[in-house]
Write a protein that binds this DNA or RNA. Sequence first.
DNA 1: GTATGTGAAGTTATTCACAGCG
DNA 2: CGCTGTGAATAACTTCACATAC
Lengths: 211, 211
Amino acid sequence: MNESEKIPIPSLRRLSAYLRQLEVLSASEVTHVSSRQLANYSKVGDATIRRDLTLFGKFGQRGVGYEVDDLISTLRVILGTQRRWGVVLVGAGALGRALMRYSGFDQRGFKIIAAFDNDPKKIGTNLGDIPIHSLDELESVIDFTAARIAILTTPSQHAQEMATRLTAAGIEGILDFATPSLEVPPESYVTYVDITAHLEELTFQVSGNHP
Amino acid sequence: MNESEKIPIPSLRRLSAYLRQLEVLSASEVTHVSSRQLANYSKVGDATIRRDLTLFGKFGQRGVGYEVDDLISTLRVILGTQRRWGVVLVGAGALGRALMRYSGFDQRGFKIIAAFDNDPKKIGTNLGDIPIHSLDELESVIDFTAARIAILTTPSQHAQEMATRLTAAGIEGILDFATPSLEVPPESYVTYVDITAHLEELTFQVSGNHP
DNA sequence: GTATGTGAAGTTATTCACAGCG
DNA sequence: CGCTGTGAATAACTTCACATAC
């Protein structure tokens, strides 16, 4: 995939942050918010917020601001989460199991519907209501559930093989915790999360070994 | 903190990725690598790699490239991970416990040395060799261990209070899984990881609701 | 008065392209 | 010759500042 009609990735990522803040405001019965107010809740400038939003349309009212619940709906439509997404998870180790137990996905439109592992002790069991399957069933379960998104939490040695099988089986987006720079077909999309890289960012800032 | 001597954050984050790749190459007994080769392993151009590295010094040899193990050491010095960092973890829920079990930190220079939770059933127990303390002991344990980095995996309602206490107790860097835009004193540093935001990035790309 | 949406300006980051060194 | 290091050029992103709308 990708062409994405020229949406800058930084802008796209900020949309999720705006959505979080708006959900908090909505829960506090706030009905309207200006870009200035929204900017107060983050490190982003008000002009950036307005520009980000106008990449997708005109959602504000001059002199008033944005209607909170409307903007939430709009952002969900843009991000594709006004509908529910079934997600499969490959690798039911410590991190995979933690994600399977994480309750926050539900309210954000995601549901882990199946997990896969190669440990015979886990295969056939459930964690909560999520069944853990053998890797042999990867393709058939993806086909049956029509899942399009996968979370990859295997050891890094197996990550590329799993990514190849996942995309061949119809998965279009992979959230990769396992290894940097997975090779996937051009019509699919990967985002990589490296927790140690974030810690390294902190130690760089904290230890100040700057030139 | 921060002034960071003008290191662009994107460059800084790529250093961690280079380090991962170099570690793989070193394990495969590769002794030298050119920026071009390194670029093949990621989506970054070779000129970007050279420019990133020269922000910190001149580490290559013309006509040859970079010596893999040397560059690994150099990057660790830059990132501050040639020494070992004790890290405290606040919130021993599913995600916190998964991170406590994660073995990859050790080889990257990090060690979770203590965890904190408010659940009486957890307090006083160990997970692996990591003791779980009462939150009452937060300040004293940070003081005793001289920890400077913390991982925050509490429910979001408690995150700000915990961040305030952590920084007051001497923590300088927080890896925040709990809530966006924590307020911290200017001499401390926060990096935020939002797993659902990454999933939203995928659903945006996959569902193609682009203008 | 207040706040959006947006050209224009400014800033930051990436890529080009090549001189210079091993 | 190959590959780094780097000015210069380009591209990407952010911020300014204001006309416009409510």
